[in-house]
Simulated assay, not measured.
Amino acid sequence: MAAPIKFGVGQSVRRKEDDALIRGKGRYTDDVAPSPALHALMLRSPHAHATYTIDAGKARGMPGVALILTAADVAELGGLPCLFNLETDPFIAPPYPILAKDEVRHVGDAVAFVVADTVDHARDAIEAIDVKWTPLPAVAGLVNAVKKGAPQVWPDKPGNVLFDVSIGDKGAAEAAFAKAHAVAEITIVNPRVITNFMETRAAVAEYDAKKDHLTLTIGSQGSHRLREILCDMILKMPKENMRVICPDVGGGFGTKLFPYREYALISVAARKLKKSVKWTAERSDHFMGDAQGRDNLTTAKMALAEDGKFLGMDVDLMGDMGAYLSTFAPYIPHGGAGMLPGLYDIQAFHCRVRTVFTNTVPVDAYRGAGRPEAAYVIERLVDAAARKLGMTPDAIRRKN
C-alpha cells in the first residue's frame, strides 16, 4: 500500500509554531511595549438601559491624564458596521456608535475612553468622571423581548424584532404535515455563551507623524479585513496610512475577528497625542464588551410517515442579537437555518427566522457560527422522531 500523501488521512503534520510556544517564546499583543507608551481604559455603563450626562472636566486635569474621549469628541467617526443584510427583505441596522451618545443599551456599553501615562492614573481618572444616570426599562431574554408591551430597545424596531422572514417552502411543509402519520416536536434553548479565551483582547497603536501613518498591533483573527473596516467605514482614512499586525493570539474562537470600539479609539488617541497608546482588556471588559455567542430559541417539528420516513420539517427559530448588531450577527441564525435539515432526506422544509433585540451585549460568530446550533436541533429532533414511532435511533437514521 502506498504511503499517504502529504496532509492525507493518517499522515502526521509538524506544526511550525509549536517550538516557540512551548518554550515560552511566543509574542502576543501584550508583549508589544513601545517606550514610552500611554495606557488606555474604557468607562462602561453599569446599567442595561439608561440615559446619561457626562462631565469629564475634573478628570481631564488629573495627574498623568493625557486624553479623555467622549461621544462628542468622536462624533465624526463612523459606527461599527453590520456586514450582513437580507437580499429579499433588507433591513436598516440601528446605529452602533464608537461611544454611546446620551443613551446606553446594555451593561458595559462604552461611554468614555481614558488615556494616561499609567493604567493606575487612567483608572483614577475613570473614577473621577461624573456620570449622572437615569435608568430606563430594560428587557433581557428572547421570550420576554417579544411579549406585548415589552420595553423597547430601539423605538423604530417595534416588538424588538429586526426581521421576521421565512426560508424554504411553507406550502409544501404544510402539505407534508397534513398527511403525516405522526409528528415529533422539540423545543431547544441554545444558551448564550461567552468565549473567555486565555488572552484578553489587546491593541497597540503607534503613530508616525511625519508619514501620518498608524501601525496597529492587535490580537485579532485577521488583519486585512480589519484594516479595511477601520479605515473605510470608521476612521475614514486611506488604507495606505495604516498597517495592522496580528501576532500570536491566545485563543479567539471567532470573537476576536471583529472591529471593536477600542481599535478605533486608540487610533484616534495616537493621532491626537502623536504618541503610542496601549490598551489591554481586563477580564471584566471581556464579559461586558466583547461579542458573545448563540442565544437561540428553536421549536422544530418533523412530519413522519408510518414507516419512519421523514415527510417534512417545520421550524420556528429566534436569535437574540443583543442591543446592537455586531459584524455578522444576523447572519448566524439566518444562515444556520438553512443547515437545519442536516444530511437527511427531507423533501419539504420551512423555517421562520426572527432576530430580536434585547438590552444585552451583542452576539456574533462563535465556534461554528450557526452550524453547531443547527446540528444540535436536527439530531435532537431525529431522536425524538425515533421515540415517537418506537424505532431505534440508528434505524430511523438509516431510513432517512
Rank of each mutant, 00 (worst) to 15 (best):
N196M: 15
A182F: 05
G24H: 03
A269I: 08
L142K: 03
A180D: 06
L38C: 13
M198K: 01
A385V: 05
G26E: 08
R380E: 15
V377W: 00
E76Y: 06
L325K: 13
A93S: 14
G336S: 07
V356P: 07
D232E: 14
F287P: 00
K170F: 02
A71Y: 03
G222D: 07
V115D: 02
L265T: 10
D314F: 00
P362N: 06
A72C: 05
A176W: 06
V361K: 08
L317A: 10
R354A: 02
A100K: 12
G141K: 13
P151F: 11
P46K: 09
K179R: 15
F357W: 03
R283E: 11
P247C: 04
Y376C: 12
A337R: 09
D212W: 08
P46M: 06
D30I: 10
V353L: 03
P90D: 03
A150L: 07
H47I: 00
D73C: 10
M233V: 00
M321D: 04
N196T: 13
A348F: 09
K170P: 00
L80M: 14
Q292H: 15
R371P: 00
D109T: 09
M391N: 08
E199T: 01
W133C: 06
I68P: 07
F253C: 01
M42Q: 14
L136W: 09
R398W: 10
G251P: 05
V13F: 14
